[in-house]
Design a protein around this nucleic acid. Sequence first.
DNA 1: CTTGAATTGTTTAAGTTTAAACTATCAGCC
DNA 2: GGCTGATAGTTTAAACTTAAACAATTCAAG
Lengths: 148, 148
Amino acid sequence: MPTHHQGNKQEQQALNAYISLLRCTETVTSATCRHLAAEKLSVGQFGTLEALYHLGPLCQRDIAKKLLKSGGNVTTVVDNLEKRALVERRRMPEDRRYYSVALTDVGQELITRIMPRHIDNIATRLAVLSPQEQDDLRRLCRKLGLTG
Amino acid sequence: MPTHHQGNKQEQQALNAYISLLRCTETVTSATCRHLAAEKLSVGQFGTLEALYHLGPLCQRDIAKKLLKSGGNVTTVVDNLEKRALVERRRMPEDRRYYSVALTDVGQELITRIMPRHIDNIATRLAVLSPQEQDDLRRLCRKLGLTG
DNA sequence: CTTGAATTGTTTAAGTTTAAACTATCAGCC
DNA sequence: GGCTGATAGTTTAAACTTAAACAATTCAAG
């Protein structure tokens, strides 16, 4: 529902796009991540496991950059994953400021088991759009999302 | 950066669109809402003031629906706004389960003062896209975001 | 060597968010 | 009237998030 009155035509158009973008993301993430509750995983925890799965061991700073979250948050997330033995920290001897955070076997097993469902959720949801539309959406979001 | 290996072509395409969408929204909201900190307003508080500004007095349930947040959250948000005398609750005599939540004069003044900056932030950010692209983005997000 | 700046990660305090249990109110039905 | 179910809002506990202050480590310049 477009908001009313204030602003010129150009602002109105930008607002409409903005509102649609936010609501869409909220709806889609809510739908695609709902299944994580069954594994007692928060979105941040899942994102961390996923990053380690795809990229291999990372230091916390790189995890934070990847998830767009604060360093303190990553400390908490990794703490909680470590308590469940899904990841482990290893001090890097060559630079003892770093931890290398890596999946354990249990963590590997968990993320391997969950990923298909997650990807399927996303693919099913995105299938509302044609392949061409998916590419269009990707292009527009990348253009709009460039940091600055 | 596209993730690698798992999944067929179609899943890969959906994933790419999904990741771009999420990162874009994160980047854009972070940029457009940064100015709210100066007024000590959270995004939820601002969203509530904005909804009341555009739509007039609402009950908490309608605010929750509009913001896509839980009812308990709206109670907290309205509590905090009420403490600052930016909104006020009025019991509806015709159905005493409802509160009508409305902007006070102070709240009206605040949101009126802040909105131009907020809209300008959005318009400036969205100006990275051409008018046609903004409409395309809106259309795609609306199509993708339909609840289900 | 040593001083100091920069970087990594931790802690703390405060605020946000949710789900679930709870109270209050309403509407329909006997 | 009194019961029943539905709805609006509140409360509580737990989890998540952040900014800011902090400690540990590295590295470069003197």
